[in-house]
Amino acid sequence: MKFDDKVPIYYQIKQYIYREIIIEHLKPGQQIPAVRQLAVTLTVNVNTIQRALSELIDEDVLVSKRGKGNFVTEDTEVLKNLKKRTVEEQVSNLYDNLTALRISPDKMLTYLENYINSRKEANHD
């Protein structure tokens, strides 16, 4: 995995696991690989992985079962929120960037609609 040098690694690992859960590479109730194995696969420090995982446990996205390891939560509410939060983050970025260009919310919708349609057509060709 490629990391952005300027952003804390533990934060990027959290984002990476969010994504894996949302696209269901990691399914609800599935076990997360062991800490050391994650460290080797992602080529990062064990302590960094540990920090990311413990924050995910605090957020209830992961559930730690004593002696067994860490598992993706089966709480659909938490998963729904996670997806909502992650999507909102992207939308909020878009919104801020467009606002910076002085695009009004109504105009934004039009731009977005047009763009989606043009992508759809491109895919049909």
């Binding site: 300027k6 804390p8 690694i9």
Partner: peptide
């Protein structure tokens, strides 16, 4: 701490 540098300075460790 390495992540603290990235967090506080927004810089890569190398920079």
């Amino acid at each position: 701490n390495a992540d603290k540098i990235r967090e506080d300075y927004g810089q890569s460790i190398e920079d």
